[in-house]
């Protein structure tokens, strides 16, 4: 098979993956709707079960190895027992896994077609990037039940894949000499990995803010049922969400630190200086500083909670900006978008 055929096959698989993700998205969205419905109808019983859950907190601790059980909400199938997962959630997850498998094949085919790593231009970077976001999400699910983020993750991946196939798609071309380096493999892949962790951290921070707003409303007695987004009631509390977001974001931050340093080492090899305030370097630095700020905020009195969550959100926005806008519209040495 020649390059063009393989690439065409890759595109087909990618479209298939996008289709599976789209159906997965619908299923996850239905699940959120179900949570809302459950939350409103089973109001009284939920309250009762929460009382139960908190009284048996010590028992719950025993069952969860790494969980902070006292912070966990009982009484809902989405966050506790895996066995009782409702059908919408299971279908959503199965479709996401199917999409991931197709996506993986698409990416590998593209790599074979190009005879190199499939992340040398923006189309490929988006393809691999979304694959890794999905992969990290599915991987984290093995450790933590974050299925409630399914709508967000599949939604984000669909949008990015759409932009990539419509806006960034380019045919396979050989690598320019400047990219022929093992640092392309290391530096770019770690950047992608960091982005995936930041994406999940971002999603958790958004949910955290919503959850916090609801908790405040409940505490103030404004709305006994806690606002419009009633599915939030089935999700972990804002503090637990914050801790989860923090953990994902610091992994992202470490990977980003490594990206920055690997980039500097590569720049030294390729351009003869390790740091030159090239636009892309500037934005990598800005993102790094924002997340350093986020980590500090978590350790600063008065900033933990919602304020630091906003910093995580700004940080991820900067990541998206760096990828979507800086690559395409800013002038600099990193002119490898392939567009």
């Amino acid at each position: 098979m020649n390059t063009a055929t393989l690439d065409a096959a890759s595109l087909l698989f990618l479209l298939g993956a996008t289709g599976a993700y789209a159906m997965s998205f619908v299923s996850f969205a239905l699940d959120l709707a179900r949570r809302s419905a459950d939350a409103t109808t089973a109001d009284a019983s939920a309250r009762a079960s929460r009382v139960l859950a908190s009284s048996s907190a010590a028992g719950a601790t025993a069952q969860r190895r790494a969980g902070v059980a006292t912070l966990e909400r009982g009484g809902d199938d989405g966050t506790t027992g895996r066995a009782r997962s409702p059908i919408s959630l299971r279908v959503g997850l199965a479709l996401a896994v199917l999409g991931f498998a197709l996506h993986l094949v698409a990416t590998i085919l593209r790599g074979i077609a190009a005879a190199r790593v499939p992340w040398a231009n923006m189309y490929e970077f988006s393809m691999t990037g979304t694959l890794v976001i999905m992969g990290v999400f599915l991987g984290v699910l093995l450790v933590r039940d974050l299925k409630f983020l399914g709508t967000f993750v599949t939604g984000l991946v669909i949008i990015l894949l759409g932009i990539a196939t419509v806006g960034f798609r380019v045919d396979v071309v050989p690598l320019p000499p400047a990219l022929q380096s093992y640092w392309l493999v290391i530096h770019v892949f770690v950047a992608i990995l960091a982005t995936a962790f930041f994406a999940l951290g971002f999603a958790l921070s958004v949910v955290q803010l919503l959850q916090h707003r609801r908790e405040v409303a409940v505490a103030d007695g404004l709305d006994p049922r806690g606002g419009g987004l009633s599915f939030l009631r089935s999700l972990p509390g804002s503090e637990q969400l914050e801790n989860l977001a923090y953990r994902l974001n610091i992994i992202g931050f470490i990977l980003w630190t490594f990206t920055l340093m690997a980039g500097a080492i590569w720049a030294e090899r390729a351009w003869g200086r390790y740091w030159g305030w090239d636009t892309k370097e500037v934005w990598t630095f800005i993102i790094w500083v924002i997340y350093a700020g986020y980590i500090h905020a978590r350790a600063t009195r008065g900033w933990r909670g919602s304020r630091s969550a906003w910093l995580a959100i700004i940080g991820f926005s900067a990541v998206l900006f760096n990828f979507g806008v800086v690559n395409v519209f800013f002038k600099g040495l990193h002119a490898y978008s392939g567009l």
């Binding site: 090239d278 934005w283 700020g293 500090h296 009195r301 002038k331």
Partner: peptide, 28 residues
């Protein structure tokens, strides 16, 4: 204080932006 460190960090991030919008004598 932590608050000052945080403020300066965020300020540094913001201050780095103009240099990416406008060409720089050193790099371009």
């Amino acid at each position: 204080s932590m608050r000052t460190a945080l403020f300066l960090l965020l300020l540094l991030a913001v201050a780095a932006i103009p240099g990416s919008l406008v060409p720089q004598r050193t790099s371009d």
